[in-house]
């Protein structure tokens, strides 16, 4: 029997649904499992969970050690965000806006660190710090994060740079602006959406980075470093609890960032 177009279309739709559901489950189920594991009253990891409790969340929130490493993670991420966004904004202008000798080489070289295996990059940086005699700490981790994150943020902002007409800057210059005024009145407002996304990228990539921190943060711990250490030795449900908190933190940052973006768009003239 031949299939009618209507039946074929229904079949296609069903397949799309099954595929989408599979992908979503594969991506989000582990996160849900982690969250569930953190509500296990028992100290040891195992499904099904017999008794649910929030005591490990309470313990996590009360822990002085965890408070310290969360502060480390935030400090690193904030510093990385601030530095990378400045470097990347001007880097993106050099990448996409201006024509100069060596630009094509720069475009390739700046992107290479993204493709380096991070453990290798981390090891290389650690050896480098040792060679020049720098004691590793959360500050060296900031440097390591920057090596990997600046290229990503540069690319994110460069996309925005490609999207705007260079004659806008010329027009502003022609209408009497100084170079600084051109940047403040035209370049920055038009790049703002890209800069904002770049900032979110920078923070979140630093926040969740494990390999670079492992090698270069020295004695200072970060959330991913601690999660790993506790998985290797000394597991308690505080591990999934902190992991879930970190995920929720990232998710709310993303959500908040999106909302601010939306509000800024609304504020434009009708």
């Amino acid at each position: 029997m031949a299939t009618t177009p209507a039946v074929a279309r229904r079949r296609t739709n069903t397949l799309i649904w099954i595929w989408t559901a599979f992908v979503l489950i594969a991506v989000y189920l582990p996160i849900v499992c982690g969250a569930l594991a953190s509500f296990n009253k028992s100290r040891y990891f195992g499904f099904p969970i017999k008794v649910y409790a929030t005591e490990w969340w309470q313990k996590t929130l009360d822990s002085i050690e965890i408070g310290m490493l969360v502060r480390n993670s935030i400090a690193i991420a904030l510093l990385v965000t601030a530095i990378s966004v400045v470097i990347a904004t001007f880097g993106a202008l050099a990448f996409a806006r201006y024509d100069w000798k060596g630009r094509r080489l720069y475009q390739k070289l700046i992107l290479l660190p993204v493709f380096f295996p991070q453990p290798v990059l981390g090891l290389a940086l650690l050896l480098g710090f040792n060679a020049v005699g720098i004691q590793t700490s959360w500050l060296t981790a900031v440097f390591a994060h920057l090596v990997w994150i600046v290229p990503v943020v540069t690319l994110v902002i460069a996309i925005q740079v490609y999207g705007f007409d260079p004659s806008l800057e010329e027009a502003a210059y022609d209408l009497g602006c100084t170079r600084v005024q051109v940047f403040r009145e035209v370049t920055l407002p038009l790049l703002w959406p890209g800069i904002w996304s770049g900032m979110l990228f920078a923070f979140l990539l630093s926040w969740s980075n494990f390999p670079l921190s492992l090698y270069t943060a020295g004695a200072d711990s970060t959330i991913p470093k601690w999660l790993y250490a506790k998985m290797v030795a000394g597991y308690t449900p505080m591990v999934p609890a902190l992991g879930t908190m970190a995920t929720l933190g990232a998710a709310s940052l993303l959500l908040g960032g999106g909302l601010i973006m939306l509000l800024l768009r609304r504020r434009q003239p009708a």
Binding site: D165, S167, L168, Y173, D174, G176, E185, L190
Partner: peptide, 28 residues
């Protein structure tokens, strides 16, 4: 250009997309 008493109307017009009609006109 910013010190010349001349002004160019661009082929693309180069109007500032983030500014209103009035803000564009009063930019200088």
């Amino acid at each position: 250009p910013n010190r010349r008493p001349t002004c160019l109307v661009f082929q693309s017009l180069a109007l500032f997309p983030h500014k209103s009609v009035g803000e564009n006109i009063a930019f200088a």
